[in-house]
Simulated assay, not measured.
Amino acid sequence: MGDWTPAMVEARLESAADVFRSLPEVKPQGYFNAWPEYFHSFADQVGQEPRMRRPKPGPRDITQADDALLWLRWLDPADVRLVWLRANRKPWKPICWELGISRATANRRWQYGIAVIVWRLNGKRVPSKRSIDFVISRAAQ
């Protein structure tokens, strides 16, 4: 792919979180139920709205989600937690409470994490002797 932008990285991480959330859960091994799963029809659920099921993610979606997870290895462990919580669309206030940081600090660290991923995807080394603001501003270009 060509040049990555922060918006592209953010969208891919959110998509990865959605894919992992929609994968079927792992069932414990051992005893199992051989009866087929019974789906109730609308007539069976009188007065209730039919629930639509989202389709399961395809192989391409799962591969892209796995690739997006590998991007997180380029970040510090504290920043990985922050970026992944935001990819799961968790609001800022619970994130700040959980990590014990201010909203401004959380936003700056999140932008820096996204910027580091953008730099690495575009084949550049993240400069260690430059400021966080420099790294963020250059990733947006």
Rank of each mutant, 00 (worst) to 15 (best):
M8T: 05
I136V: 15
Q45A: 07
S15Q: 10
S41P: 01
V9C: 07
M1E: 08
I117W: 12
H40N: 02
R60K: 03
Q111A: 14
R86Q: 03
D79I: 05
D66W: 02
A16P: 06
D76K: 14
V83M: 07
L69R: 14
V116I: 13
A139S: 15
G30I: 02
S41M: 02
Y38E: 12
R53M: 04
D3F: 14
P36E: 13
R21K: 01
A68I: 06
S15Y: 02
L99Q: 14
P24L: 09
R60H: 05
V116G: 07
P24D: 08
K56C: 01
L75Y: 12
K93D: 13
P59F: 00
A68C: 01
A16E: 04
D79N: 11
V9T: 02
R86W: 01
Q111E: 14
A78R: 15
V126C: 05
D133W: 06
K124N: 13
V126W: 11
E10D: 12
R130K: 15
L85V: 02
W84A: 10
V116T: 12
A115M: 08
V126F: 09
L70Q: 14
W92A: 07
V83A: 10
P55K: 02
V135Y: 09
D3L: 14
Q141H: 14
Y38Q: 06
R120H: 12
W92M: 09
R138V: 07
L72C: 02
R103Q: 15
P6I: 10
P127Y: 09
L99I: 11
L23E: 04
V118H: 07
G47C: 01
Q64E: 14
D79R: 09
W35H: 02
D66H: 10
F42S: 08
D79H: 10
R130F: 13
R86L: 07
W4C: 03
L13P: 01
S102G: 15
Q29H: 04
W71C: 01
R73Y: 05
V80H: 00
L70C: 07
D3V: 12
S137Y: 08
A43I: 05
W92I: 07
R60Q: 09
R12E: 12
N33G: 01
V26D: 05
T63G: 03
K124C: 06
D76L: 15
G47A: 04
W74S: 08
V26I: 06
R138E: 15
P94E: 13
I101L: 06
E10C: 00
M52K: 06
S15H: 10
D66K: 11
P55L: 00
I62L: 04
A7K: 12
K93A: 14
A104C: 06
P57N: 07
A139T: 13
G30S: 04
I117P: 03
S128M: 14
E37R: 04
A16K: 00
L121T: 10
D133S: 14
R108T: 10
R103A: 15
P28T: 08
R12I: 00
T5Y: 04
A78H: 13
L121R: 11
Q64M: 11
W4K: 04
R51F: 07
S15A: 11
A115N: 07
Q45V: 06
L75C: 13
I132E: 15
